[in-house]
Amino acid sequence: MNRILATCAAEFRIARRNRWVTISALMMVLFGMVLSAAGSAPTGALGADRLSVTVASLTSLAVYLVPLLALLLAFDAVAGELERGTLPLLLAYPVSRPEALIGKLIAHLAVLSVALLAGYGTAALAAIAVDTRALAGLPALFRLFWSSLLLGATFLGTGYALSAWSRRPSAAAGLGIGLWLVVIVLYDLALLAGIVADNGGFFTTALFPYALLANPADAFRLYNLSASQATAAAAGIAGAAATIPGWQSLASILLWPLAALGLAIAAFRKVTL
């Protein structure tokens, strides 16, 4: 435990020195402010409070940004140590590979928490400032926060695995961007194309819900929208969210981080010096 904490403290310090904390927090604040400004159009007709509406738009944003931030934080984790030549000495210390990786994971989750708190906090304050009923949306905001961390953990773990497989930071960064494109952007486009071609057939009714649950980003969106009061405010897969029980999407966003961490540890174990 002590070794995990020591690794975590050193990694967080490195992330702070490398301006990762500042850059990611600024980025989230910027997006939070843009969303609040865009969301200030009248929504009263829907009957939802301003914060719940904000949470719905933050969810759509987080699906893109959280995995991206996580992959950016993670790509250097193993490949960077290999390239700098710091790995042999680290592994000669009485710290196991899983311990080292978990220490990094906690540090990177802390960086992500700071960024999310800054970004979501900005948007929430903006909402509460103009709508006194907005406090009703706080539970939804809290749920968005911790589920974002779980989504981040999934992509951090996957990023570590890519970092260990590729052994070079540049290759790991390239693979990370590729993964983000495929899982976050292309996956949904492919599903959409499938639905259009299928025209209400077997794919749409039987496979589509599982395809959504299998993708951590889609499961994250489903979970936050199905639990949200303002599903109507979010377009796209909102309809599907209604048909999939909340516990299934919750299970998916809980299991993915564990699977990703397992993958990362397995990949790190395979790294030879």
């Binding site: 020591a6 490195i14 490398n18 030549g85 000669a92």
Partner: peptide, 30 residues
């Protein structure tokens, strides 16, 4: 590993840490 100390050839460290922080990290690992 608890009993052995190692100095690799071309020992490298993270450039963003100070000497004191880097050694402090290794101390805590032990």
């Amino acid at each position: 590993r608890a009993r052995v100390a190692y100095l690799p050839e071309n020992a490298a460290f993270h450039p963003a840490l100070t000497g004191e922080e880097q050694i402090g990290f290794y101390l805590r690992l032990r």
